[in-house]
Write a protein that binds this DNA or RNA. Structure first.
Lengths: 344, 344
DNA sequence: CATTGGCGCTCCTCCCGGAAGAGTGCTGGC
DNA sequence: GCCAGCACTCTTCCGGGAGGAGCGCCAATG
């Protein structure tokens, strides 16, 4: 149990690397014999067993039972991805293919397609945390649905269209509605609702009473639209995880996992963590602090607009995943998403 | 194998009913002994065995192996739901609770919440085929995003907001855009795009060239919006099916099933069938013609607006489901949805 | 002193066979 | 027509080898 030496000599590292790679490849505990052949070190199984015993003492590997080979622990995976892993970047062709599958028509579609592409490429679950809406609006429009129900259409600065139904106390005439939207559009387009609220109070004291009521409602709705839709997470390809043996063998875990997927807020917290760091980040097993994920790893990368992080993309799969492949995919996808968003 | 008598005498029916009910309740093959106690017929197991042999000959029940009890076949279920089943309608309280959970803010939310409620109540998967959009528009708006990209905002007659990006060949000035939308809104609000197209050609020959271009683009986009979003199917609570023993025991089937869920169009075809009939309809096992569903039943009911069927709600669960409970739930939900839609 | 072959040990998996239990089909009596 | 009884069939559930994989330890070796 004593994790004596925290530093691994080169041989131990090489063996650990070979072991993890092998285990990732075929999911069977790896024995000394197999390692002896794989490692390229020309060591006998007996010598390797010594090293393996050390690695086990240090908590990098473990054996499921007395006489099986060893499998990596979470700590082993951690060390592996941090210092042993050699990722090979995607080649130009793959990037182009990936890019070709993105649907750039709207932010919504873009996000969905990114999530989808991630799941398709990795055959795990793809997730994207949608960007927070920027706080301003580009255009606003009131539309009368019935006596006291107004439809507020709000085009946000990033070109997304939001709509909300407002219940009013009194009935407004079409011309009043047009007037209100004109005022807002002509004077305040591009400002944040925060600003508008302040300026409306200052500048438009002379506005007719009912008009300010309308404005207030609009601003409230706008605020709400911004804050409510602040962040959301889009998941694709959960089904893929049904086909992953490591996960589908214990049904109960699998159910927990899928329940987690329905619980957007929890997932959001986890993914938000990643947007603080920059570059690809990896959560292995329970590191994220969520039990349902203890057989899973989450590979994430933040994406940005104008140099500011606005969201996260990621892949959720079994801990035993081909990191050297998943990592560049997530990395590139985040970058492609960033640049796709920059073009609007 | 010869399905000799197609008519079942009363005793046989009673026994079949008891058998199916018992099997639905606990999922174990039902033996003659158990039936003898359940049926209330005061018959000995031996006599019951005779009847069971007949039922088996007629294809209503089958035994998994020589010495297990019997379980209903698809045909048995069919007969059960068609003529033996006694559904007890939901009481007022339950209906109110159900109604309280619907979100009536928008058609979209309404449909989602209906699907969700169905899955919550039945603990299976809830599906809703969204209504076809009515073909007219209530309001239309052009918004310039960049030089050659316009955002078309379209409020459909049923109050939903659609938006599409139009790529134009030339650049339009804001006033041109306003003019175009004014023309459309003032003259053609409420008409179908079909009509508009005809009338625009007839009445507005004198329009400036670039204006007609814009109109054409708008109409095309409108058409597309209507046809594209013609029908879609919303599923909730697929996760629930992971917890259903009958399904989760064979992983492969389960995966097929979940793949089916991702394949909206196939599902749509199935559900569309149901909108022809009126009232609750039930597809048992493979009756729907889809293998992934052969361990499932689908309970559907159409819903309507102004007396016209516009969509379908339904529940997908294991064949061994509590029909007497699911049927009224689906039935009532369809009616609630109809009346919720009528209020707009 | 690191490396290595050898040996004993543990534990898993697979397979077999017997016992128990459930439920049927059949038969002969009422 | 109903039913008690009986033989039969299958499934499920251990328990006990046999085989195999892989480890730990040890003593020999360069």
């Amino acid at each position: 149990m004593a994790h004596e030496t925290q530093t691994l000599n080169e041989r131990a590292q090489l063996l650990l690397k070979a072991l993890v790679e092998r285990y990732i490849a075929d999911g069977q505990p790896v024995g000394s014999r197999a390692l002896s052949k794989l490692s390229g070190l020309d060591l006998s199984p007996a010598s390797i067993r010594n090293v393996m015993a050390d690695l086990e003492d240090m908590g990098f590997i473990a054996s499921p039972h007395t006489s099986a080979g060893r499998i990596p622990t979470a700590r082993g995976y951690r060390f592996f991805v941090d210092t042993l892993l050699t990722v090979k970047p995607l080649d130009r062709l793959e990037i182009n293919q990936l890019e070709g599958q993105l649907q750039i028509e709207s932010t919504q579609k873009l996000v969905t397609s990114v999530s989808h592409v991630l799941s398709e490429l990795t055959r795990f679950a793809g997730v994207v945390v949608t960007p927070r809406r920027s706080a301003g609006f580009r255009h606003i429009e009131f539309l009368k649905l019935s006596e006291k129900r107004l439809l507020l259409i709000l085009v946000t600065a990033d070109g997304d269209v939001q709509n909300r139904i407002i219940l009013t106390e009194k009935s407004y005439s079409p011309s009043e509605l047009i007037e209100a939207s004109n005022i807002l559009n002509q004077n305040y387009a591009g400002c944040s609702f925060e600003d508008i609220r302040r300026r409306v109070q200052a500048e438009l004291k002379q506005l007719r009473e009912n008009m300010t009521q309308l404005m207030t409602a609009a601003l409230a709705a706008g605020d709400q639209a911004v804050s409510e839709s602040a962040e959301d997470v889009v998941i694709s390809g959960e089904v893929n995880l049904l086909g992953v043996n490591d996960l589908s063998s214990n049904m109960d875990k699998l159910r927990e996992l899928f329940n987690l997927f329905e619980h957007r807020t929890t997932l959001l917290q986890l993914l938000d963590h990643s947007s603080r760091a920059q570059g690809v980040q990896i959560f292995i097993g329970g590191e994220a602090g969520l039990q349902p994920l203890d057989e899973c790893s989450v590979v994430t990368a933040p994406y940005e607009v104008d140099g500011k992080v606005v969201g996260t993309v990621g892949v959720i799969g079994p801990t035993r995943m081909a990191y050297e492949r998943v990592i560049p995919i997530v990395d590139v996808t985040a970058k492609l998403l960033s640049s796709a968003l920059a073009q609007r």
